[in-house]
Simulated scan of single mutants.
Amino acid sequence: MAGTAPGPAAPTPAAASTAAAAGLVDVTTLVPDMALEIRYAGNDNFTGGPVDGYRAPKCLLLGPAAQALQRVEMSLRERQLRLKLFDCYRPARAVAEFVRWAGDLSDQRSKPRYYPNLDKRELLGDYIAPVSGHSRGATLDLTLMQCGAGGGDCRPLDMGTDFDFFDPRAHTESPDTTPAQRANRLRLREAMAAQGFRNYPLEWWHYTLAPEPAPPMLYDVPIQ
């Protein structure tokens, strides 16, 4: 989800000024060849440009979440599968930019790709909200890839929609998917659940480590 996820009603702003001070870990220090496609650090996202706070295409997570993700990745590799990460820790300033974007009804450039069946006014709420679980450092967005022999030639599996597709078809158990697409979503959910990650049912790509390592906190240090 671009903006929100279930969590505390009144998160506590964190005073940390750097990722290291916040306890955020670059996942590539644990899995150097982790596949990354950090959309908000570039132009390939629903806003159409780099998002405030994303100064580098990195995946940062609190230590326990990063370690759990490493275990998921290592388990999948035993079956010639791998993860591809779209987003991890998200600075609070990025969430504020999403809210501003959603309120700008004159900007409809990304509607055909990201919300073709919704009026932009409907995005505020279930899809985009002023507080995001991503800003607590234990939530991430990702997909599953099938790899060839030896772990090479990895290609994303068909999940039925793209990442950040604002539509009921993106619900993890949407009936508007093929049996193969549904099976791929459930395979991802099973692998993540095995290491303690909980899926957000409205988005097949969205997972949070449960229990969260720092549930009252809300971080705003930039990714760099």
Rank of each mutant, 00 (worst) to 15 (best):
S132K: 01
N117H: 15
Q195C: 05
E190P: 04
G48H: 05
A210N: 11
P6H: 06
A180T: 09
T18S: 07
A214E: 11
P13C: 11
Y114N: 03
R100E: 10
L188Q: 01
R121C: 10
E122D: 12
G3P: 01
F46M: 02
Y219P: 01
P50M: 15
T4V: 11
P32S: 05
V27H: 00
A214R: 12
R185P: 00
G137R: 00
Q80R: 13
L202K: 13
L118K: 08
A2P: 07
R182C: 13
A56D: 06
R169H: 13
G48Q: 10
G151D: 07
D141S: 11
S132E: 01
V221C: 01
V31G: 03
D141K: 05
A170S: 09
A10D: 15
P215M: 09
Q80V: 09
F166R: 01
P215G: 05
A16W: 03
Q70R: 13
K111A: 11
I128T: 02
L142Y: 04
G152E: 08
A9G: 08
A214Y: 10
F86V: 09
P201F: 07
A191P: 01
A210C: 14
D158F: 06
E122H: 12
G49F: 01
P32T: 12
L36H: 02
S75D: 14
A68M: 05
F163A: 15
A65R: 00
L24P: 00
E37M: 13
M1T: 10
T12Y: 08
R77D: 02
P6A: 14
A102D: 00
R55C: 15
A129T: 07
D167G: 07
R79V: 05
A20S: 11
F166L: 05
P11K: 08
P6N: 13
E173Y: 14
T178A: 12
A92K: 06
F46H: 15
R39K: 14
R90G: 09
T177I: 15
A22Q: 02
L85P: 00
T28N: 12
L202V: 12
I128M: 03
S75Y: 00
T18E: 04
I223L: 10
L61M: 13
S132A: 13
P64A: 10
R189A: 14
A194E: 10
G49L: 04
G49C: 06
K120M: 08
F98Q: 11
D176S: 14
V51A: 03
P215H: 09
T143I: 04
G133V: 07
M74G: 13
N184I: 10
D33Q: 14
T18H: 05
S110Y: 06
